[in-house]
């Protein structure tokens, strides 16, 4: 393989690594928002997922069990969010923020013993034969389980949302909880499920960070990825395949950040580190300026509390 091919391959693998945690978190949030619930606690859920996954992997010595721990912990945080916003009908914005503040603190507290420790990262599962293809084999068929899962979920969730009865009900609940309730659908229960799926996915995103991306735990290691995921959902106008596009675009921005100086860009590292955040603002602006398109696609009841009456 030529040098430029090697660099291209390395760059592509970096993009995939940076994009996958965002993809998980954003796909989960997409389902949550489709049910009409705004979850601003994604960042906190990712952190709790990351630290739990790391703890699970360290204690059991099995990275896969670690991944499950991360997903489960994210789901528990979502359950807390749900109890507050769905059962007690609290303000979704304030509740999400408190989940994030709490998650940042609790994860730091739990993770105190793990700082500086490393675990065995999740190993790659090359697809037999296909992965032997030069270049494309390594690019497409030699990844860990979570990368395959994240891409499969894009297709799976697209199908679920737009082609199944369950997806139709989910969208109905998000667009008009009143009508859905009148039709006899258990709005609150569906929202609980959507929220918990979102938490599970945020937990998986966190697990990816602490078990694969940088196989160690450090305080606040998500560095705003939970918030970027929220922006990605808006960018994607609540469509899974566009989340995939957005997440990989952000992976590309990360490349610039990591290797910018290597490319001969004489810019202080702090400015390169700003890029993902500035890019997030840019995509939000680009997508939000078209109010009609946004309103057409966004779940109509997003962020509004619903109280079933009789």
């Amino acid at each position: 393989m030529s040098d430029s091919m090697t660099i291209l391959l390395a760059a592509s693998l970096t993009i995939i690594g940076a994009a996958t945690p965002l993809l998980f978190a954003a796909l989960g949030e997409l389902i949550t928002e489709r049910s009409g619930v705004l979850n601003l606690g994604v960042e906190g859920m990712m952190l709790i997922g990351a630290v739990s996954a790391f703890a699970g992997a360290l204690i059991t010595g099995n990275t896969y069990i670690g991944v499950l721990c991360g997903a489960f912990a994210g789901m528990l945080m979502a359950l807390l969010h749900g109890y507050l916003t769905l059962t007690l009908m609290t303000n979704q914005v304030a509740t999400g923020l408190s989940i994030t503040i709490f998650g940042v603190g609790l994860s730091a507290l739990i993770g105190l013993e793990f700082v500086g420790v490393t675990v065995e990262p999740l190993s790659n599962l090359p697809v037999p034969l296909l992965s032997e293809i030069p270049f494309f084999g390594t690019l497409l068929f030699d990844h860990n389980l979570l990368v395959y899962l994240s891409v499969a979920l894009v297709f799976g969730l697209s199908f679920f949302i737009f082609k199944t009865r369950g997806g139709l009900i989910l969208r109905a609940v998000g667009d008009s909880p009143e009508s859905s309730h009148a039709l006899g659908y258990p709005v609150i229960k569906i929202r609980y499920m959507a929220l918990m799926f979102g938490g599970l996915m945020a937990g998986l995103g966190g697990a990816y960070l602490s078990l694969i991306y940088t196989p160690m735990w450090s305080e606040n290691m998500t560095a705003g990825r939970g918030w970027v995921a929220l922006a990605l959902v808006v960018f994607a106008t609540w469509k899974p395949w566009r989340v995939l596009l957005g997440a990989y675009m952000f992976g590309g921005v990360t490349i610039l950040q990591l290797h910018g100086q290597g490319f001969g860009l004489d810019i202080p590292s702090q400015f390169l580190s700003m890029l993902p955040y500035l890019a997030t603002i840019l995509v939000l602006v680009l997508i939000s300026r078209d109010r009609l398109k946004l309103r057409e696609n966004s779940p109509a009841s997003l962020g509004r509390t619903f109280r079933p009456t009789a």
């Binding site: 807390l80 507050l84 304030a94 509740t95 923020l97 408190s98 989940i99 503040i101 709490f102 998650g103 940042v104 603190g105 609790l106 730091a108 507290l109 105190l112 305080e219």
Partner: peptide
């Protein structure tokens, strides 16, 4: 110090 954040989060919950 993280205990501070935990308390703050709990108070808001």
């Amino acid at each position: 110090q993280a205990v501070t954040g935990v308390f703050q989060g709990m108070l808001l919950f």
